[in-house]
Design a protein around this nucleic acid. Structure first.
Lengths: 229, 229
DNA sequence: ATTAATAAGTGTATATTTTACATTTTCAAT
DNA sequence: ATTGAAAATGTAAAATATACACTTATTAAT
């Protein structure tokens, strides 16, 4: 028993991260140029390998932090990809995670360092291995998530306008929504606080800023409500 | 490059299966008595290790077939569990799969061979490692799945009564449903065929048998409908 | 053959939710 | 003061979900 389950195969486990951001108009993901063989120079998800001493969640956080400088970001396991030949170098199983970050205060320096770049989810380039499949999977999951959680918290700056929130939903769902119905629906959730100040950036009139009421927001999620736009 | 990613850690990957069945009254899962150390003699999910030459889906099917004799069963990846100490013998990451099988023509011989036993999901014993957590996760997933797919196909015999179908949903959701509303809702999906013959087992009057219209059923799933009972 | 027992089968009215849709307001720039 | 541009706002109609109770068919017992 000293040897553990000694006759069983061991495999390498990669963790690849689909990092979502929203830039007021478009839903984007952060991709890096791979800097080692094979497929050096091609676009890829940010990834790394699981170490024996960490959990998968831990590995995913480590990798994300490495690239973005962020701690404490929303991340969730997506799916495991295990086609035998998915990595031509060696049998590697990859666990995909997706993360939601506020693109605004993302550290641009790090992007240079890793040759990282934001891409609209509508224009994802060819990625190495099965990474395109992972991205599509993540987009589906994010769409699903909109019907279960109010996702804005993670992807928007602290203060935002109704229109920005609507555009976020539109970007994720890839469909236009009716303004009045959207506002009514969001208000019925009662998770927003209307602030005094306005954002003057987008019109002469200016539009009121909102922020999430964190407490109500969390309670809502726990209740497991179903939210259909 | 001959050595691949030679400095990275490799880990053992287990696959554990939550096997759901329905016996006309209760939602059940199939558990086995573990026959090797550690935790020999305790209840456990049916599991095994991933081999280098197979995918995770392949491993899950292999393991399921081994225990139940079934091929071609609905199975789906659930979640990966990777707590560092989850297996006291050795660092092992486990991928949980859940399967839906028709309990009726399940091979009872194999149950003896593996000391396997069906347990109501309402009375799951203490399981080894983090297997109880996996089971709870699987039940949540199955509940969610009812709102997205008509799940009966996998869990019921080919012919079944409306009442059996209702009981299946009630068992999964763990709540009573209204008979008339249930029937109306199911009929509105238009995926069932009402057969000529009746099941005389449960009443003097007898109740009509139904079966799924496989084609409509598959079309419905593809459409991605949302189904709320 | 009448009766009793048992589960099957069936419909509707009300409440709730979702959808579609157009005008007025504000204010900075000219 | 006029203009332009986006923000803000409400309602009626349609669709969906819910609550709810009696009749029917059959057979086993008398």
């Amino acid at each position: 028993m000293v040897d553990g389950y000694s006759f069983e195969d061991k495999v390498l486990m990669a963790v690849d991260c689909i990092i979502f951001g929203f830039d007021k108009e478009e839903l984007k993901i952060l991709l890096v140029k791979r800097d080692f063989e094979p497929k050096k120079g091609e676009w890829s998800l940010m990834g790394g390998f699981l170490k024996k001493s960490e959990t998968l969640d831990g590995a995913a956080s480590r990798i994300l932090h490495h690239l973005t400088g962020y701690h404490e970001v929303f991340m969730e396991q997506l799916h495991i990809f295990s086609e035998v030949d998915r990595d031509p170098v060696e049998r590697t199983v990859s666990v995909a995670y997706y993360a939601l970050i506020n693109i605004e205060d993302h550290n641009a320096e790090l992007n240079k360092q890793y040759s990282a770049q934001w891409f609209s989810v509508l224009e994802i380039p060819n990625l190495i291995f099965d990474h395109n499949k992972m991205v599509q999977h993540a987009i589906r999951r994010l769409r699903y998530k909109t019907s279960k959680d109010p996702i804005g918290f993670e992807l928007l700056p602290q203060k935002f306008t109704m229109r920005q929130l609507q555009k976020l939903y539109e970007a994720i769902l890839n469909e236009k929504l009716d303004k009045r119905n959207f506002i009514n629906k969001i208000n019925s959730l009662a998770i927003l606080v209307k602030l005094e100040d306005k954002d003057m950036g987008s019109s002469r009139k200016g539009s009121f800023l909102y922020s999430f009421d964190e407490e109500k927001y969390k309670k809502k999620i726990e209740e497991g409500f179903y939210f259909r736009l």
